[in-house]
Amino acid sequence: MSNEFSHVNAAGEANMVDVSSKQPTVREARAEGYVRMSATTLAKIIEGNHHKGDVFAVARIAGIQAAKQTSSLIPLCHPLMLSKVAVDFAAEPEHNRVRIESYCKLTGQTGVEMEALTACSVAALTLFDMCKAVDPAMVLEGIRVLEKVGGKTGHWQATDSASGAAS
């Protein structure tokens, strides 16, 4: 039986992939996501007068902490020794949203895409949590891997589905 999903064994059961025979290489991944909100909520964040304080600072720490906890949240992920986690925010008033970008890096035997996605997702959830009292209609959207570097498959980069151009 050919097995195209590495987290499923020959019997069709979920299992953790054995990466012990892989050579450690530098692995990197970037992910992005958006939190769409009202113009008023975004203005409060940008102007720094949100009643809960520095929303981006709290969401950044939450995203970093989440990346470090990915293997506790996603059942078949390996615990990883991350050497770098970054979470950045860009307000996009023209779209009434905040763009979140995460970056994870390590030297290891498996990739860090899940850690980058988790960092981005939890940062978005934290923005929502901090702003939900004033804007419960916010929408989390577009969470995806932008790029991964290293490992057997080498370099991969997302393309913009609208234009086909690299992001």
Rank of each mutant, 00 (worst) to 15 (best):
T153R: 08
P93I: 02
A66R: 10
K148N: 01
V17G: 08
K148H: 03
H95A: 15
E115L: 06
R144W: 10
F128H: 09
A137L: 12
T159Q: 15
R60A: 05
R99C: 12
I100S: 12
S6D: 06
S2A: 08
I64D: 05
T25H: 04
H78W: 12
S20Q: 05
W156I: 02
Q157P: 03
S20P: 00
K68V: 01
D135Q: 06
T40F: 06
A86Q: 15
V149Q: 15
C77F: 06
A158E: 11
N9P: 06
E47R: 10
E141Q: 14
E141D: 14
S102T: 10
A90C: 11
Q109D: 03
K105D: 07
I100D: 13
E28G: 00
Q23T: 11
L127A: 02
A67E: 10
E147V: 04
S38I: 02
Q109T: 12
I46A: 03
M81S: 12
E28A: 03
C131V: 01
Q65G: 05
T107Y: 03
G63K: 09
M1E: 05
T110R: 12
G12S: 00
I61S: 11
K52I: 02
E4V: 14
C120S: 06
P79E: 11
G142S: 08
N3Y: 07
A14V: 09
K44T: 11
F128A: 04
R60L: 10
N3S: 04
G108D: 04
V17W: 12
E4C: 06
M81H: 09
M130H: 09
T70C: 12
G154L: 02
V85H: 00
S167C: 12
L106A: 08
F128P: 01
